[in-house]
Amino acid sequence: MTAKQHAPATLRNREPILAVLRKELPTSGRVLEIAAGTGEHAVFFAGAFPQVEWMPSDPSPEAIASIAAYREDYAGENLAAPVMLDASARDWPVERADAVLCVNMVHISPWEASTGLFDGAARLLAKGAPLILYGPYFEADVEPAASNLEFDRSLKARDPRWGIRDLAEVDRLAARSGFTRTARHAMPANNLTLVYRRR
C-alpha cells in the first residue's frame, strides 16, 4: 500500500500550465500551492523551478499524505513539506509567499473557499505579486463548451455549492481583495489560466 494518489488530469495539463508559469512566476522566492491535491503538480513544478521554494498545501489529510509520499522520492531540495491549509479559513499557517498558485479548486469547492483564497493571498503577497488560478470558467462573451456545461451540471449534482464560476464574478471578488487581473491564458480542454496581481 502507498499513500500516493494519482490524478490523470495532472499529466494532461502540467505542461500547458508550466508554459504559463514560466511567464508569470518570479525567478526566486516561495510559491504557495493551494489545494495541491495528489502532489504530482508540486513535484513537477518544483523540479522545473529549482531556484524557487515550492510549498504545497491542502485541507485533506489524504492529500497531505500523498504529497509527502511523492516528496520522499523528489531528488531536489526546494520542495517544502506539505502544509495543512483550508483556503476558507481566516488564519493560514503560512506567513509569506512571493506567489500563490491554485489549480482546479475554485469550481470544486464552496464559494467561501474562493473568498478565503483571495483574502489569504492578499495577506501574504506584496504589491505586484501573482495569484494564479487554473480551471474552467464561464465568460459573458464566450459561448460555453458543451463539455463545460455538462461538467457544471455534474458538479452541482455532487454538491450544490460547487460549479463553474462566472469570470466576471471572480474578477469582482479579486478587486474586493485588492487584486487586478493582468492575464487570461486560454488552455486545452476549455480551461483558462488567470493571473491576478496584488495592487
Rank of each mutant, 00 (worst) to 15 (best):
A3V: 02
A3G: 15
L11C: 07
L21K: 05
V31Q: 02
E33F: 06
G37F: 01
T38K: 00
T38R: 00
E40N: 06
E40Q: 15
A42F: 07
V43S: 05
F44G: 03
F45W: 10
A46C: 00
A48R: 09
F49Q: 02
F49W: 02
P56C: 01
P56N: 03
D58G: 07
A65H: 04
Y70E: 10
P82Y: 02
V83N: 08
D86Y: 01
D86M: 00
D86H: 00
S88K: 14
D91A: 15
W92F: 11
V94M: 06
R96A: 15
A97S: 12
V100S: 05
V103K: 07
N104A: 01
V106Q: 08
V106H: 12
H107F: 00
W111S: 10
A113S: 14
D119M: 12
A126S: 14
L131P: 03
L133Q: 03
G135L: 02
V142S: 08
V142I: 14
V142D: 09
V142A: 10
P144I: 03
S147C: 12
S147A: 13
L149H: 09
L149E: 14
E150S: 13
E150Y: 11
F151Q: 11
S154G: 10
L155S: 06
A157V: 10
D159N: 15
R161L: 14
W162D: 09
A168R: 12
S177Y: 08
S177K: 11
G178P: 05
G178F: 07
G178R: 04
R181N: 05
R181Y: 04
A183M: 00
R184Y: 05
A186Y: 12
M187R: 05
N191T: 01
L192N: 05
V195D: 04
Y196E: 01
R197W: 03
